[in-house]
Design a protein around this nucleic acid. Sequence first.
DNA 1: TACTTGACAAAACAAGTGTTCGGAAGCTAT
DNA 2: ATAGCTTCCGAACACTTGTTTTGTCAAGTA
Lengths: 216, 216
Amino acid sequence: MRRREMSDRQADIYEYIVNFIKARGISPSIRDIQHDLNISSTSVVSYNLDVLEKLGKIVRNDKISRGISIPGLSPALLSQEIGRVPLLGTITAGSPLPDPEEIDHSRAEQIVVPADVVPPTRLDGVYALKVRGQSMIDALIDDGDIVLLRRQETAENGQMVAAWLIDENAVTLKKFYREDGRIRLQPANSTMQPIYTAPNNVRIQGRVIGVLRSLV
Amino acid sequence: MRRREMSDRQADIYEYIVNFIKARGISPSIRDIQHDLNISSTSVVSYNLDVLEKLGKIVRNDKISRGISIPGLSPALLSQEIGRVPLLGTITAGSPLPDPEEIDHSRAEQIVVPADVVPPTRLDGVYALKVRGQSMIDALIDDGDIVLLRRQETAENGQMVAAWLIDENAVTLKKFYREDGRIRLQPANSTMQPIYTAPNNVRIQGRVIGVLRSLV
DNA sequence: TACTTGACAAAACAAGTGTTCGGAAGCTAT
DNA sequence: ATAGCTTCCGAACACTTGTTTTGTCAAGTA
């Protein structure tokens, strides 16, 4: 069986379920799906729901009516006001970021992210880290802040990135600029001085796309 | 018929429904309610659900299975993971904060606040402002950030407050310290210098309890 | 070619689930 | 007490809904 990807029909069904729950607050029945998507038989729906369940996109509650639910995503997520990302660990100046691939996402604590910070539609591949220490203070990020990162290894000029400086053995959050023959890492705080370094001394580990700070 | 108030049994049923939806993401069936609440007949459940609907506490979707839903209360609010506060305007260095009393809260845009930033239980009297300009940069707050404030006119030492400096006609966000005969306003960024001023030149306008930053 | 597999179709089946109805018990006001 | 109302009971009923079975068909594969 093909894994990882949904067929067009499965994607339609998945989208229909999400919209149905969003609009009505309850799950659709198999016959709802069949009728509204013009599918010829309930067995086809059932078949594709099984595939979706194996893909982990939905959960079918055996035997009970309207028992489809979306795992990981609570009803709150469907409101389009928030999303969730895994909190994968801590970021400090002196160590590289953890590899998101190597962490059990399903066991990680989940952080709620308001749509005002990152729209739920753009939350794919995003994870959160708790900041320890004040080494990121020139990026306007304080001890205890939660930063939201999207994994990427390249960056556009001006983007705020998590950069691993190999020689210095340090992670830093700076705005990234590629200048002829060198990299400029510019603090977000304009009163601070930029770092200049060689391109092969820099590994981009992710892009900063949001910050949550609690002072309570 | 008695209106306005639920009987004990109706309150039990209502609570059961809310918890069921919260826990499972789908509505309970009448027989779920009957069984778990030890009610003798489904007709009793149905009867009391009708009463609850007339009281406006629930909505029954005619005929369809597991068709009970809770109006008004969005699924997101049931999750206790988020709260909402009104976005009352903009904060700049050069003008005092708007008076929350004078703003029509009900018409204000609502900002979703994750429980990780401010627990919903502590959200009373809190409002949000959008930051314009970089004058708050020594408080680690950038242009475009959303700050969460709780209205208060006094502060404990060390709290981050929005302070109105009367002579300078400026609002600033600093850590507040009362020292003998004067006020010290300390930037959050330790490389910056504090401001010293007379107590009667300072009006505390609120306490900063959270920051949301979107870099998307 | 023969075999397997994914995807679909049609229909029948079985279980889940809301509704209804006659009757009884308790309560309140006249 | 009588009437009227709310609440409850038990059971039967009918509709809703998930599941299963039996085939078909096309695409890949040894």
